[in-house]
Amino acid sequence: MAAHSTPKWFRSLICPGYVFIMPAIIITAGLILYPLLNGLIVSLHQWNWVSSGMNYMPFIGARNYVRLVHDPYFWNSLRHTFYFALGALVIEFGLGMLGARLLNAGLRGALLFRTALMFPLMVSDIVAAVAWKMLLNPSMGPINTILAGLHLGKPNWLGNPALVVPALSIVDAWWQTGNLTLILLAGLQTIPREPMEMAKVDGANSIQLFRHLVWPHLIPFAKTAVAFRVIDLLRVFALPWGITGGGPGRASEMAQLYIYAQGMGRYLDIGYSTSLAITFAIIVGVSVLVLFGRPHGEG
């Protein structure tokens, strides 16, 4: 038979399992793999389009990486990023858990409230940024109008270096708490009713119920939700870029904001900014691995 004369490796290549992945592999190779490898090479070159043009690109070994170790602005931006992420995560998880439990209490009209709680998810981050830039405006913004009405003063949210990162965390919490609420609610809804009823009959209090029945069910949901939030929080760009532009001074400059400014955003120092991006990618990857292991079970 003809099939037997073709070599075995060739037959295994044309089996549908491989053919099916080919289109995606080609796209991945050209648009993902090639740029990534190219980036690694670029990061080992001096390539500054402003000072010496696109065509001057000498190999300088690891000197970009040595430079970033001594770049205080880069480490500053990292500190702001983690500070921002931690603040936002704490608020989002707390409010998300509260929202999920309230929505799961079996009240009439819960669906309506669910829509209200997840509404900010339907707004893009740059629209959220534009909105909150106005809302937090110290003199004309409604937030300070309310605070002044309660005799709480008019804090300069976006102009005070000590307040600006927490303010951004609060904006992110407004934008993404619904994310946590939805996933935790999905988790709560998987809990079977019978053991809960039985435990209640046996006189378990609500803290015991939560610790022994609810929480074990919620763990995989909480872990996945938090993992995705951490990934997206560390990569934050649109909120600080749209609200403060990293200011005042550099008080709210986050990692991707700084990398963007060093690269196509401002200084066109492509070699150096690429080394920053790769270093930041490793930092995010390691943080996520340390915190969560592999977030997905492999099937």
Partner: peptide, 28 residues
């Protein structure tokens, strides 16, 4: 396993890792 795992890892990488090399490529 390796392939689908790395597709997932892409979700973690900050956008700038791709955008800087792509920017240079696209300009050329």
């Amino acid at each position: 396993g390796a392939l689908s795992g790395s597709l997932f890892a892409l979700r973690i990488l900050p956008e700038m890792v791709f955008l800087l090399p792509l920017y240079a490529m696209y300009r050329k």
